[in-house]
């Protein structure tokens, strides 16, 4: 028997009970966050009002707050460059921030590629395109992460930055893109036709790195009211890292989603009609058992 396409009616229950806006609350907030961060960077080049200079790899806000991508700095270190004070302070601030709110918050609330891959994921669902993972394991990202550091060491240059779609897109929008669009289009098509959530959830070493930063992060998704789960599977359908839900929702132990690959995007909170999920601290004690 052919399975019904879950995408056709996804979120319909929530929209009916809480309204369309409420059913997409965190999605809107994330888009707002992503776009306003991008807009802050563009204020300078577009309107000559320099609130933020630079781009996501390193920036200076209001001439006082330095922020540096710790991953690119680590590659620079592996390439043989001794770290400068400014960059180090910037990276430290970033690490501390993501340690608190969850490393992959970068992916779902900041990274501009997320809008591209989310679009691919949405379209893939609407067009009912189903392909297997193509053998691309979600552990591949750690291999690529290790590779980018090893190659930096071997070649003495920051090699990953030559192809990194995250910086190519963000830097491109601010400083000029030219053929960079081609690469972004490739990421989109790869996610759409080849592998579901292929880039962000399986390959991207930047995301893998930020995931590791947030290994012990404080802010977590909590399947607190998991006994009220109706097994509609919609959270699994919208979650870009769906393997992380099961242990919390259906497991014996804690109801906190402890997997560091959770991006804290909040889609599961929005989509769940019985409001099983919520944001909470990782230390919150769970009270209810799961209904297997």
């Amino acid at each position: 028997m052919k399975k019904p396409n879950i995408c056709k009616q996804i979120g319909q229950d929530v929209i009916n009970s809480r309204g369309w806006f409420s059913a997409n609350r965190f999605l809107f907030l994330r888009r707002f966050s992503q776009l306003s961060i991008l807009f802050l960077f563009l204020l300078g080049p577009w309107f000559d009002s320099w609130v933020v200079k630079g781009n996501l790899t390193s920036s200076l806000t209001l001439d006082i707050l330095p922020l540096t991508d710790p991953f690119v700095l680590l590659q620079s270190f592996f390439a043989g460059h001794s770290l400068a004070k400014d960059a180090l302070i910037g990276a430290l601030i970033v690490v501390l921030f993501y340690f608190a709110v969850g490393g992959r918050v970068f992916c779902s609330w900041v990274c501009p590629v997320n809008m591209v891959t989310d679009a691919a994921s949405w379209l893939r669902c609407k067009l009912n395109i189903k392909t297997k993972s193509g053998g691309v394991s979600n552990k591949t990202r750690y291999w690529l992460l290790a590779m980018s550091l090893i190659l930096a060491y071997l070649t003495g240059t920051i090699v990953w930055e030559l192809v990194n779609p995250v910086s190519i897109l963000h830097r491109g929008i601010i400083f000029g893109m030219s053929f960079g669009w081609g690469l972004i289009a490739l990421v989109f098509l790869f996610d759409l036709f080849v592998v579901k959530n292929g880039w962000c959830s399986r390959l991207c070493p930047v995301g893998a790195f930020y995931g590791l930063i947030g290994e012990g992060s404080l802010l977590r998704i909590n399947a607190d009211k998991r006994d009220e789960c109706t097994d509609c599977l919609e959270c699994f359908a919208v979650c870009p890292e769906s393997q992380i839900i099961n242990p919390a929702l259906k497991g014996e132990g804690s109801s906190i989603v402890l997997d560091s690959n959770c991006t804290n995007c909040g889609r599961c909170i929005d989509i769940c009609e019985p409001k099983v999920f919520s944001y909470s601290s990782r230390f919150k004690k769970n009270t209810r058992p799961s209904n297997k």
Binding site: P45, K53, G54, S58, V72, S76, H81, E161, S178, F179
Partner: peptide, 28 residues
Amino acid sequence: KDFNAACVRCGLCVNDCPYPTLSLATLR
């Protein structure tokens, strides 16, 4: 060689250049 190990391509130098001299290399 050292420059390629050290530069993170943030473009802060380009932003602070008061003339249209510096730019960041695109794929072109």
